[in-house]
């Protein structure tokens, strides 16, 4: 018994506005993208015949295929780095920090930047990475290098460095949640059954946090795949990933080409999410009834 009757018409009508909004603004445009990417002919109109020409043109270009490969590689690398780093930090915060005060302080220090603008945080890396940037000044002052290293700003290294700081939180968040839901007795039970701490970790703790790891990896995957802003801010015009290509085509009014890239991006993401969903049930995170 609650303020809403189970399976009542009221519960149905309450959900309609939100559902309509999401359908109209998220689902319809995404379906539309697929349709537009198949438009042939000379003019941009719904009357166009449907062909795979746009895709054929994309795959005929070696540069684009290479770019797609680079994007996937870059994303996988970031998933690995943020995954390991995020897990270590999550484990430290949940399992190793004993004092509740310190845990809260460190936890807040960890998540607060996540709530500020990603764009501004990406920009904040610019003064760090330049030829006269903080990193180079530091390296030269300790004598690690004589002349400044140009490899940071407008480079893959710089992009990676910034993205690690932006997305580690996403990899760690779900792990923190799963770790804190493991009853301490489970680890103790394993120990009384002669398991050493390392074995306890690999046989008990890690398998139980796996759903969190997978969700974190999905979040990092989706965000890095579509993060054109950081790449544009730090990579300048010298570096691009698949998502920048969408923007590039859009700005030069090649809508159909942009749609093709967007659809390919979407397929990549869909494949990633489907693989992840085979490993773990998303509903286990937080909203289980």
């Amino acid at each position: 018994m609650s303020t809403i009757r189970v399976r009542s018409p009221a519960s149905y009508w309450l959900a309609v506005p939100a559902a309509a909004w999401m359908l109209g603004v998220v689902v319809v445009p995404i379906v539309l993208l697929v349709w537009v990417s198949l438009w042939g002919g000379r003019t941009f109109s719904p009357a166009s015949p449907l062909t795979f020409d746009n895709y054929a043109r994309f795959f005929a270009n070696q540069t684009y295929i290479k770019l797609a490969g680079t994007t996937v590689m870059h994303t996988v690398m970031l998933m690995a780095v943020t995954g390991v780093l995020g897990y270590c930090i999550a484990y430290c915060l949940v399992m190793k920090v004993r004092s509740p005060g310190w845990r809260l302080a460190l936890f807040l220090a960890f998540i607060i930047p996540f709530w500020t603008s990603t764009l501004i945080r990406a920009i904040a890396w610019v003064p760090f990475l330049g030829v006269n940037g903080v990193i180079n000044q530091l390296l030269m002052s300790i004598g690690a290098t004589r002349s400044p290293i140009e490899a940071f700003l407008y480079s893959k290294t710089g992009i990676t460095m910034a993205q690690v700081s932006l997305y580690t939180m996403m990899a760690a968040g779900p792990v923190v949640y799963m770790l804190s839901s493991i009853a301490p007795q489970l680890r103790e039970a394993a120990m009384t059954l002669k398991a050493t701490p390392l074995t306890v970790f690999w046989r008990i703790v890690f398998p139980l946090t796996l759903p969190g790891v997978v969700i974190g990896q999905v979040l990092v995957f989706l965000n890095v795949m579509s993060d054109f802003a950081t790449v544009a801010t730090i990579g300048g015009n010298k570096h691009a990933l698949l998502s920048n290509l969408v923007l590039l085509f859009y700005e030069s009014s090649q809508i159909r080409a942009a749609s093709v890239v967007a659809v390919l991006l979407m397929i990549c993401m869909l494949v990633g999410v489907i693989i992840a969903l085979r490993v773990v049930d998303v509903r286990r995170l937080g909203v289980e009834r």
Partner: peptide, 17 residues
């Protein structure tokens, strides 16, 4: 440490994995 002792334990809520 627990894993070096000749004991076993049954926990209150059983602590099954």
């Amino acid at each position: 440490p627990p894993w070096q002792r000749d004991i076993a334990m049954m926990f209150q809520d059983f602590a099954l994995f």
